[in-house]
Design a binder for these strands. Structure first.
Lengths: 200, 200
DNA sequence: GGCATTGTCAACATAGTGTTGAGTAACTGC
DNA sequence: GCAGTTACTCAACACTATGTTGACAATGCC
């Protein structure tokens, strides 16, 4: 087995083990054994187990980022449908690698690099959403309201937290089948609703 | 120093240390030293350092729960103002113990008991909000729409995530001064807005 | 004074991380 | 076909943390 194969084996072992247990319950020894090498050899490939998780998360995040197409630039075709497609990318990418996505969310709370990595994705999403909201206002489809960026931050944050709960299944969570409908509805109302609450 | 004072000293040390560093960077030895006892003596008072953090979080959560008054039952007086008061409790309670709140959010990802504790608070908030939304619909102030509970879950989740980012200061975060305005606006639009997006 | 109860800690056992240094295998240029 | 370099491996070590044991005080109280 070549060096590169060993490295791949370590990453594969990590992803597999993350499906069974949390990152802090996986030891360097587990990863080394899983890849068929000794613990010191592990350190030839990665400086720490954190680095392994970070590599996996980095990949997933890059994938999510690549999935972010240009649907938000074609909102005028059919706003509700396009927004739905936009939100769906998030759901699909992370839903396809749940264990890793959940591990990432957890890892992010204890690791500065992971936190930064995630902050970057969030920032891209927020930017896209804010730009789209502004465009909708310019073309007269959406009324003025909160600063677009502030609104985008709140909505993207909502999606993150709600999807996390749904994937992890920790209550109170929305059901898989309805989660996207609920999120989309809050997005649409927050962006397009022209009414403030009635005073009666 | 009596036994009870020692126990209090351990808790106080934990809360103080949490202001400087993350829970996983605090050792049993740190807590014991801070309380002026040896490490083995620590175990006389608490079975693990997790138990210490759990006790602190439990208290904070109880405090937040107690703060949840009946404002949501008096929405008809002035919906926007009452909802604002309701959301403000969340902000005030956790804002007053930021370090602990952030540690709690982190701890929750690795500890089942903490997770359950938090799930209970979330559930209370969701219930209150859902009940209030239904009442607003019944009295004709809010239009029909998403199941009230689903909407409540999404909104409470949004608040949690957004406030976490604001308190932790990890980007993209909303500013302290505007965060409550932004959240409130999304709540009001999601609950009271009667318009679906225009099709032009 | 006897005797629980409460509290204390030195010493131990165990499990994990990361390092060192000595060794092997394989390819590279001559 | 062999000297030199690079890629890779691992036993043994040093360190840090957790949690346990068992012997030993104090304190109260009957």
């Amino acid at each position: 087995m070549s060096g590169e194969e060993r490295e791949t084996a370590i990453l594969a072992t990590a992803e597999r083990l993350l499906e069974e247990r949390a990152p802090q319950e996986i030891s360097v020894d587990d990863l080394a054994r899983g890849a068929g090498i000794s613990r010191p050899s592990f350190y030839f490939y990665f400086p720490s187990k954190e680095a392994v998780f970070l590599t996996l998360i980095d990949r997933l995040v890059a994938q999510a980022d690549a999935g972010r197409g240009d649907v938000l630039e074609r909102l005028s075709e059919d706003p509700a449908a396009r927004w739905r497609e936009g939100l769906q990318v998030f759901y699909d990418t992370f839903g396809a690698h749940r264990a890793l996505a959940l591990a990432g969310a957890q890892f992010r709370t204890v690791n500065a690099e992971a936190r930064e990595l995630w902050a970057n994705v969030m920032e891209s999403w927020v930017n896209d959403a804010a730009t789209a909201i502004e465009a909708e206002r310019v073309r007269g489809a959406a009324p003025a309201g909160l600063p677009a960026r502030d609104l985008a931050i709140a909505l993207v944050s909502m999606n993150e937290r709600v999807l996390y709960a749904t994937f992890a299944g920790d209550p109170p969570a929305l059901a898989e089948e309805t989660v996207m409908d609920v999120l989309l509805s809050v997005w649409l109302r927050s962006i397009y609703a022209s009414t403030e609450p009635p005073r009666f």
